[in-house]
Design a protein around this nucleic acid. Structure first.
Lengths: 163, 163
DNA sequence: TTGGAATGTCAACAAGACTGACGTAAAATA
DNA sequence: TATTTTACGTCAGTCTTGTTGACATTCCAA
């Protein structure tokens, strides 16, 4: 019987450890969204708007299909959000030159400004957390998160990293 | 000008690093909820039911107010969920003996069984992630998450740990 | 005995997700 | 050239989960 495969304790794999991880994810995600949520409320937007803006900013000129894959929602759901963002002049569409069926999405200056506000707020909390725990903990944090992703999303995540 | 406070690089605090952390949280949370969601769908329950069952299981006999604090929703919202769980005989109420206004919540055997199913599915993914990255990464993972929580939730989280 | 706390419940509403169906334009292909 | 597929938009309807506000009940404690 081998309880200790490589000489290291496997105590970190107990049910209690796993339950703690689950609860940590739950409570931390609340903190993670709290600051942007407060800003979004002032403008009558929601998390869905934030997510769309984040990734349009991250991948300027993305088409709708690609954004759908990243966000993991239906086109009807995304369309509702995009419609308001375009109406409010935070996002612009450009029809593709190569394939004119495609709509390429960009943030306007106004959109960039709000996105900056949101990401600053969200980053601030994460920066503080990072600073408190140090670089090694941050490395571990990202490794676990990456390992928890669905394989397809892991690919998406890595593509974003290297772009 | 001091870019290197304690001799360690502060490269882990760049905007790019923070953005990666934000996206990792977003994608990982999808994976985190994916497995339970699939099970819940079969029973026509949602994430709200899962969360309630998780913490009732975790703190058997909790009263409604305490559960509200943990979950961070309104009593009306929680009540809707509790009503269906009680109707379906997954949860039982016991009126407090000391303070008879209070309702103490417990999972029934049926409730425990479903909760077990859900937590097993969710733990399985986390266990795999933990196993792949090793104990040091797991420590870092939890440290960052804990540092990202709102102070009050951090207290709640710690209380659950030590109970 | 009265005030306030804990709880439940009704109603109305909104965000944000979903499915299904349909339409249009453009590209790809047979 | 004709047909099919792709990309996108939109209308309609539904569901879950959250919200506020109002009101009733029970009952502890001052």
């Amino acid at each position: 019987m081998q309880n200790d495969r490589t000489g290291e304790s496997l105590l970190f794999l107990t049910d209690e450890q796993l339950r703690q991880g689950i609860e940590a994810m739950f409570f931390a995600y609340r903190g993670f969204t709290a600051d942007p949520d407060r800003i979004l409320e002032k403008y009558n937007y929601g998390r869905a708007h934030h997510r769309a803006m984040h990734f349009i900013n991250r991948v300027p000129g993305t088409n709708v299909n690609n954004l759908l894959k990243i966000l993991g929602v239906t086109k009807q759901s995304l369309n509702r959000v995009l419609r308001t963002l375009i109406q409010d002049e935070l996002v612009t569409l450009k029809i593709g030159t190569k394939d004119r069926r495609e709509r390429h999405l960009y943030l306007t200056d106004k959109g960039k400004s709000l996105e900056k506000q949101l990401s600053t707020a969200q980053s601030h909390r994460m920066r503080e957390a990072y600073r408190r725990v140090g670089p090694d903990a941050v490395t571990g944090f990202k490794q676990v998160l990456e390992a928890m992703m669905d394989p397809k999303l892991q690919v998406t995540y890595k593509k974003l990293r290297s772009s």
